[in-house]
């Protein structure tokens, strides 16, 4: 067991964890932040994407101990301080960028990381960036549309409203 300290969604957290505790288990079981989902256990589906020091990371293949001292953001910390939805969250809701919702937290976290580094991505850039996030329900169309809309771009030309 080792003590780790990190900031999660703006709050400092200190816990004692085993060396082999995965970041997903730390978030889900220790902190009860269950919005970070486990879809494949092998860092391929992207349902577990969080931000560590501002970078999008698949938390199912990261140890909690590796986040010692880090700034961590999860889906639970994405809404605005007053509880209203962030621009990206609101866009996923409005543009029907979700069905079963299991991939949604990872999608939102990936989208947030993308728009931070590239505030006005092209459609092709959005699709390319989301290669590591699998959705089985939507066919991706409305996810791409939601992210384009969240970046402030006109999505009226993206058909199939």
């Amino acid at each position: 067991m080792a003590e780790v300290t990190m900031t999660v969604n703006g709050k400092s957290v200190t816990k004692s964890v085993k060396g082999n505790t995965l970041m997903t288990d730390f978030l889900r079981e220790e902190l009860r932040l269950t919005g970070t989902h486990v879809g494949c256990d092998t860092s391929q589906c992207g349902a577990c994407v969080i931000h560590v020091n501002g970078q999008a990371v698949k938390s199912c293949t990261m140890f909690a101990a590796e986040a010692d001292g880090a700034e961590v953001a999860t889906i639970e910390g994405q809404a605005n301080a007053d509880g209203s939805l962030s621009v990206i969250q609101a866009a996923f809701q409005e543009h029907h960028g979700l069905q079963c919702g299991f991939c949604t937290p990872g999608m939102v976290m990936s989208a947030a990381a993308l728009l931070k580094e590239n505030p006005k991505p092209t459609e092709a850039e959005v699709r390319d960036y989301l290669e590591g996030n699998i959705c089985r329900c939507t066919g991706y169309h409305n996810i791409v549309k939601a992210i384009m809309a969240a970046s402030g771009q006109d999505v009226s030309s993206i058909a199939a409203e």
């Binding site: 889900r28 009860r32 932040l33 269950t34 919005g35 970070t36 989902h37 486990v38 999860t74 889906i75 639970e76 994405q78 809404a79 939805l85 969250q89 609101a90 996923f92 809701q93 409005e94 029907h96 979700l98 069905q99 919702g101 299991f102 949604t104 937290p105 939102v108």
Partner: peptide
């Protein structure tokens, strides 16, 4: 209208079986 649970999904608060306390 959007999915009824859209708000829960985008905030990570929609519960699946593995999320139930």
């Amino acid at each position: 209208l959007p999915h009824d649970a859209a708000r829960l999904h985008v905030t990570g608060s929609a519960r699946y079986v593995d999320d139930i306390p």
